[in-house]
Design a protein around this nucleic acid. Sequence first.
DNA 1: GACCGATTCAAACGATTGATTAATTCTTGG
DNA 2: CCAAGAATTAATCAATCGTTTGAATCGGTC
Lengths: 227, 227
Amino acid sequence: MNAQPTDASFDTRQRLIEAAILTFAEKGFDGAGIREIAKRANANSALVTYHFAGKEGLYLEALRYIFNRKACQVAQLALRPRVEGPGAREDALQGVKEHIRAFMEDLMACNRLIDPVEEAAMALMAREMQAPRPASSALLMEHIRPHVEHLMHCLRVLRPDLSTDELLNMGLSIQGQLLYFRNSLGISRLIRGNPDYPEDLSVLTQHFTDFSLRGLGIPEAFPQPRN
Amino acid sequence: MNAQPTDASFDTRQRLIEAAILTFAEKGFDGAGIREIAKRANANSALVTYHFAGKEGLYLEALRYIFNRKACQVAQLALRPRVEGPGAREDALQGVKEHIRAFMEDLMACNRLIDPVEEAAMALMAREMQAPRPASSALLMEHIRPHVEHLMHCLRVLRPDLSTDELLNMGLSIQGQLLYFRNSLGISRLIRGNPDYPEDLSVLTQHFTDFSLRGLGIPEAFPQPRN
DNA sequence: GACCGATTCAAACGATTGATTAATTCTTGG
DNA sequence: CCAAGAATTAATCAATCGTTTGAATCGGTC
């Protein structure tokens, strides 16, 4: 018995996955063709079926690959702030802030000067969160749920007076700003007439944080507007 | 000279456009096929090229058709609140509230029991606002811009202390909540485990209004949270 | 060196795509 | 009634899609 299932073919799989991330991020699932992906990976298009049992399989593998990356900051957040004691409220507040910051930096990875695969990976993740494919929504849920629950946990500490439904609406409003912003960069640039927008991500992150915390109704976290 | 360019073929155009709205809304531009659209309209697929010079032309015509509909509430908003006098601030506040309400009711037309074409039209509009096709972004801009400017005008009255960039960010945050919500209904239902969500649109509209006005920093418009 | 299975490849398959063609039907002005 | 142009049709085109096929190639064991 010879010929282990593992070989230098690992490289080929890797190259295909990275090329898939790039292409899927650019053109979406339907727009990206197997031949184009294979060409980018310097591989034969038949290998997609061979290694991943088809285009859909490659797409799922690409998503899995992204979620397990170190550069994905959201995936690295500490997921449990203290819930008791005098510091619980400050920790929850900090948790919300970090959630917003991590999401913004992940989603806007295009502004960090990192390798193109990393950049495309975040674009693809954003795209997938916006309109998840049926076959991949389970995978997405599995990886997103902990962070949703983390955010909800923080919100509950900050607003213990609200019902679960009201808290979910709060979370939706926060998340909506961030994801919509990412996916509507094109329109935003059109409206502002500034192709380089945003020049400074930290200003925007600060805005989303301020807006969200005021929206949450946490007056002590913010100076009231000056008028 | 005989045979006017207008005939009973107007009906065929109309049927093709409505079928296009239904199909494009369901499957997107790439996913929808000319043959399927034509079949739905009880017409021949060649008529798409004949009447609209191709698939892209039909898509643009479908968008134009939507924007000119009466059911599109956003398009019916009064676009200029009073800007001077003692009532200006109340009018601007009302303008923001109506903007949110009209957008919510338009985007969530699926919950109003109206005809399927109307419903699909709003879904397609939401889809297009989220990820506008290059060929149609100009058309979209032309119809959306007045309402963006109207919202910005209200915001400026309410927060005269902010810069244009800051006001744009505020508008982005408001719009983001609404559009993201519409496009992420699938995910929301997954998270909540409730396929009928939202049962009551008015509750949600109220939440978005409250969250946005608090986020804007208009304390007098709202009772502070009770804790 | 021969064998075996994993891997890679060029080529082709069947289906589907949007668009085109040429023939036909419909409508209408003269 | 009859051409003329508009409208509609079935049939086909060329291109592209994801997938399949069968042979070639590679690496490692006997």
